[in-house]
Measured scan of single mutants.
Amino acid sequence: TTFEIRVGDLRITLHNADEEEIRWAEEALRRGIHADEILRTLEERRR
């Protein structure tokens, strides 16, 4: 599944994310964390 998060002009697309990952990514985007860093962190958490 694919889920797109939008916060203002910012956007990130997550693939195969669970609800916790989606909530975490949305909050991180709101705090101004760059999408590349969010994706990198999620990848590390999945390992």
Rank of each mutant, 00 (worst) to 15 (best):
I38K: 00
E37Y: 08
I5C: 14
D9Y: 07
F3R: 09
A28L: 08
R46W: 06
E4H: 05
D36I: 11
R23S: 11
L10M: 13
A35V: 14
D9N: 10
R45L: 08
L42S: 01
N16A: 06
E20L: 11
W24K: 00
D36C: 10
R40C: 06
G8V: 03
E19F: 07
T41R: 03
R30H: 11
A17D: 02
T2N: 09
R31G: 09
I5N: 02
E20Q: 12
T13I: 14
W24L: 08
L14I: 10
T41D: 08
R11W: 12
E4N: 01
H34W: 09
W24F: 13
T2H: 15
L14F: 04
W24P: 00
I33C: 07
E26R: 10
R40K: 15
E20V: 12
T41C: 04
R40Y: 11
E4L: 06
D18I: 13
L14Y: 02
F3S: 15
L10Y: 10
G32V: 01
E44L: 06
E43Q: 06
I38V: 12
D36K: 06
I33P: 00
E43G: 04
D9Q: 08
R47W: 09
D9K: 04
V7T: 04
L10F: 09
I12M: 11
L39W: 06
A35H: 10
E19T: 08
A17P: 13
R46L: 04
I12E: 02
E20G: 13
G32K: 03
F3W: 10
R6E: 13
R47H: 15
R30N: 10
H34S: 13
L14R: 01
T1P: 07
T41I: 11
R46D: 04
R40S: 12
L29I: 09
R47V: 15
D18Y: 09
E21V: 02
A28T: 03
A28F: 05
I33G: 05
R23T: 11
R6T: 14
E21D: 09
E44N: 04
T13N: 06
R45K: 07
D9G: 05
E26T: 12
E4M: 03
T2R: 10
T41A: 15
L39V: 08
A35I: 09
E26C: 06
A35Y: 10
L39K: 10
A35N: 14
N16Q: 06
H15G: 05
V7H: 07
R30K: 14
R31L: 10
H34V: 07
T1K: 14
N16P: 02
E19S: 10
E21F: 04
E27T: 11
H34P: 14
H15V: 07
L10T: 13
V7C: 12
E43D: 09
D36G: 08
T13F: 05
R23W: 08
I33N: 05
A25H: 00
D18M: 07
R6I: 15
E27H: 10
E26N: 08
L42Y: 02
L39G: 03
H15Q: 06
A17K: 02
I33K: 05
L10I: 13
E43W: 06
A25S: 07
A25W: 03
T2Y: 13
H34D: 14
L14C: 05
G8R: 02
R23P: 01
R40P: 01
L14P: 01
L14A: 01
L42I: 15
A35Q: 11
R47A: 14
I38H: 00
E37L: 09
G32T: 01
R40A: 11
I22A: 15
L14E: 00
R45F: 11
L39H: 12
T41N: 10
A17F: 06
I33H: 07
R30P: 00
R23I: 12
L14V: 13
G8N: 05
E37S: 10
A25K: 00
T2E: 15
I5S: 01
R6D: 09
A17Q: 01
L10R: 12
W24T: 02
I22Q: 05
R46C: 04
A35D: 05
H15D: 05
E4A: 01
T1N: 12
L10G: 06
E27Y: 09
I12K: 02
R11M: 15
E21C: 02
G8F: 03
R40M: 11
E19V: 11
E21H: 02
D18V: 12
E19W: 12
R11E: 10
I12N: 02
I12G: 01
E20K: 09
R11N: 12
F3A: 11
N16T: 04
D36A: 04
R30Y: 09
E27C: 15
I33E: 11
H34T: 12
N16V: 07
I33T: 09
A25E: 00
F3C: 15
A25R: 00
E26P: 00
I12H: 02
R11I: 15
E44V: 08
L10S: 10
G32H: 04
E4W: 03
H15N: 12
A25L: 07
I22K: 08
E37M: 13
A25N: 00
H15K: 08
I5D: 05
E27V: 01
I5H: 01
G32C: 06
T2S: 14
A35R: 10
E20A: 05
I33L: 05
I22D: 00
R11F: 14
A35K: 09
I38T: 01
F3N: 14
H15T: 12
R23K: 14
E21T: 03
R6K: 15
A17C: 02
R11Q: 06
E27M: 11
E37N: 08
E20I: 08
R23C: 05
R46Y: 05
A17L: 07
T1R: 13
T13E: 09
G8I: 03
A35G: 07
T41V: 14
E21N: 02
I12S: 01
R31Y: 10
N16M: 08
A17Y: 05
E20S: 15
G32L: 03
I33F: 11
I5W: 01
R47Y: 15
T13D: 04
L10K: 13
L10C: 05
T2I: 12
T41G: 11
D18K: 11
G32W: 01
E21P: 00
T1H: 13
R31H: 11
A35S: 12
A17G: 04
R45W: 15
R47L: 15
D9R: 02
R47C: 14
A35P: 15
W24Q: 01
R30I: 14
E44T: 05
L29F: 06
T1S: 06
E26G: 01
E26Y: 10
E4K: 01
L14W: 04
G32R: 01
L14D: 00
E43K: 05
L29W: 04
E37W: 10
A28Y: 05
I33W: 13
